[in-house]
Amino acid sequence: MHSEVCPLFFGLGQGDALARRCAAAGLELRLQRRRSDSLDYADADAACAAAFAGGPVAQAWSRFDAEARARTQRRYLDAIALWGDGRGGYKMPAEYLIVVGHRSAE
């Protein structure tokens, strides 16, 4: 996945990008694991709140006026319609990258 909005946020999940960043920071990688799950939202408001108010685009979202927010929400809901659960909610696939690093005390 690539995102022009948050390239670092999404880019760190590609390949071994996060492991390379940890190594560059002097961390010894102890664990790297991908976990598949789902993001479950009861309704459109919950899905939009998670994506905009608390997600990686929250700062940009906070600067949108009401018209831009409404337009963005419509487009987002169109984009996630595929994962609608038929009852007004959404169950979207998600993947998490978990990394544990250690820095030696020298």
Rank of each mutant, 00 (worst) to 15 (best):
C6R: 04
P7K: 02
L8I: 14
F9V: 01
F10S: 13
F10P: 00
F10R: 01
G13K: 03
G13D: 02
G15K: 14
G15Q: 12
L18N: 11
A19P: 09
A24T: 13
A25S: 09
A25C: 15
G26W: 02
G26E: 11
L29P: 09
R30N: 02
Q32C: 15
R34Y: 04
S36W: 07
S36P: 00
D37I: 02
S38T: 14
Y41T: 03
Y41V: 00
A42P: 05
A42D: 13
D45T: 06
A51G: 09
A53Y: 00
A53R: 06
G54N: 04
G54E: 08
G54S: 08
G55Y: 02
V57L: 05
Q59G: 04
A60E: 15
A60R: 14
A60V: 13
W61P: 08
S62N: 05
D65S: 01
R69Y: 08
A70Y: 00
A70W: 00
Q73C: 09
R75W: 09
R75Y: 07
Y76D: 06
A79H: 10
A79T: 02
L82R: 12
G84V: 04
D85G: 06
R87N: 08
Y90E: 08
K91V: 12
M92G: 05
E95C: 01
I98S: 02
V99W: 09
S104K: 15
S104W: 06
A105M: 13
E106C: 15
